[in-house]
Computed example of a mutant assay.
Amino acid sequence: MLEKNNNPHQFLLFIFSICQASRRLWTCLCGNSLYFFNNAKDSHYVEKMDLGGFVSLKDDSSRDRNLEAARLILRMKDGETRLTAPNLEARELWKGFLYSVIDLNVPTSLTLLPGQLQMLKEVVDKERSRRRTRNPARAPPSPLSVPLVGEIPACFRPVSRTEAEVLLERHPDCGNMLLRPGRDGCSLAVTTRQDLNGSVFRHYRVTQRDQGGYIIDVENPIPCATLHDVIDALVEKTAGTLQPFLLEEPYEENITYVSANDENGEKILHTAPTSPLPKAPALPPKQDRWCTSPLSRSPAPDRRILTSSVPASPTNPMRRLIHSPSPLTQTLNEELKMTLEKRRVSQD
């Protein structure tokens, strides 16, 4: 039985899934967990959600049949849950409760009345006290205490028995068998789900042998060398009816960041722009210093380079062509010699 008087606030819950229709449940927050009930008068819950796998919480702008209702999207590591509050004020208060027990701090970014903020402060103090006095022996075993050897299969999930059943029922298209830590913290277990006029769950213990390897503890124990062989053996024994549970972790679709308002210090969540940054203008192509026009790219030939590149063979016709003086050049040279000779004689 669950005592619901720890938190008087409840609201209708709708769980949306690709594979299942929405479910109408009541929920209440006790400690660091959400408990779900078929109606407000039930004393026994039908599902439980541990907020230790919290990822994000944001408003849902989609409309409900009740025009005054307001929705939330609670994203956990294993999927999303959509919550419906009676109105906007109740949604804001529920966001305050959830953030308070998750972060153990009263959120400052919400629009709440002074009395509501005082209520959240009391919730934080209660939750801190509860965690300090909680009996460690009753806490679920840590997955780190499980002596795993070798490569871990992708269908391994660090969840409890109840959480494994919820995962398999909520995502039937992702597989119907997962590997998880055992209750004693020293063994493992395989949880399976099949349909037979409803969900049928089975749990199999997997223990590690002292000499190495693992054993599926059934009436006729099945030895396996590795954890992958454990999964393969169950698939083979059921002729492929059981398939490993492979759930892709959700990723954010937009880049977000938190910044503080300079005036009041309030923190605001921003979404980065999705349009690409403008590119810098491209520089014009570098012109070659030898180019005489935009269409000309080849440098003019250098006479010195051309001359030096001719072989020094006396029989080479190119050498004779370059070094043989023209008649005009010979005449000019003779006149220059005569002028210099006259100048030298007059000076003597």
Rank of each mutant, 00 (worst) to 15 (best):
M1R: 12
E3F: 13
E3H: 14
H9C: 08
S17Q: 15
I18C: 02
C19I: 00
A21V: 03
A21G: 15
W26Y: 15
L29E: 01
L29W: 01
G31T: 05
N32H: 13
L34R: 01
F36T: 03
D42Q: 14
V46Y: 09
V46L: 08
L51G: 03
G52R: 12
F54A: 03
L57G: 07
K58S: 13
S62H: 03
D64L: 00
I73K: 05
I73D: 01
R75C: 05
E80A: 12
R82W: 01
T84G: 00
T84H: 00
L88S: 15
W94P: 01
K95A: 02
F97D: 03
L98V: 09
L98Y: 05
S100C: 03
I102L: 06
D103W: 04
L104V: 02
V106I: 10
V106P: 02
P107I: 05
T108N: 10
S109V: 00
L110Y: 05
P114E: 08
L117N: 08
M119E: 15
V123L: 13
V124N: 10
E127D: 11
R130F: 07
R131T: 07
T133P: 02
R134L: 11
N135S: 11
N135I: 04
A139M: 12
P140M: 09
P140Q: 10
P141G: 06
V149N: 02
G150T: 11
G150M: 14
T162Q: 13
E165K: 12
L167I: 06
L167R: 07
L167F: 02
L168A: 07
E169P: 00
R170F: 10
H171C: 04
P172Y: 05
M177T: 05
L179Q: 03
L179A: 05
G182I: 06
G185W: 11
C186P: 09
G198H: 11
S199K: 04
V200C: 09
F201I: 10
Y204E: 05
R205Y: 03
T207D: 13
T207V: 12
R209S: 13
Y214P: 02
I215D: 14
P221Y: 07
P221V: 08
T226D: 05
V230S: 02
I231A: 04
D232V: 07
V235N: 08
K237T: 10
T238D: 12
Q243H: 06
F245V: 10
E248N: 14
E248D: 11
E253H: 13
N254P: 00
A260R: 15
N261C: 15
G265D: 06
K267T: 14
I268C: 10
P273R: 14
S275Q: 08
A280R: 09
A280T: 09
L283S: 14
P285H: 05
K286H: 07
D288P: 06
T292N: 09
R303L: 14
S308T: 12
S309Y: 09
S313M: 11
N316W: 06
H323I: 07
T329A: 15
T331L: 15
L332S: 06
K337C: 04
L340W: 08
Q347W: 13
Q347R: 15
Q347G: 00
D348K: 14
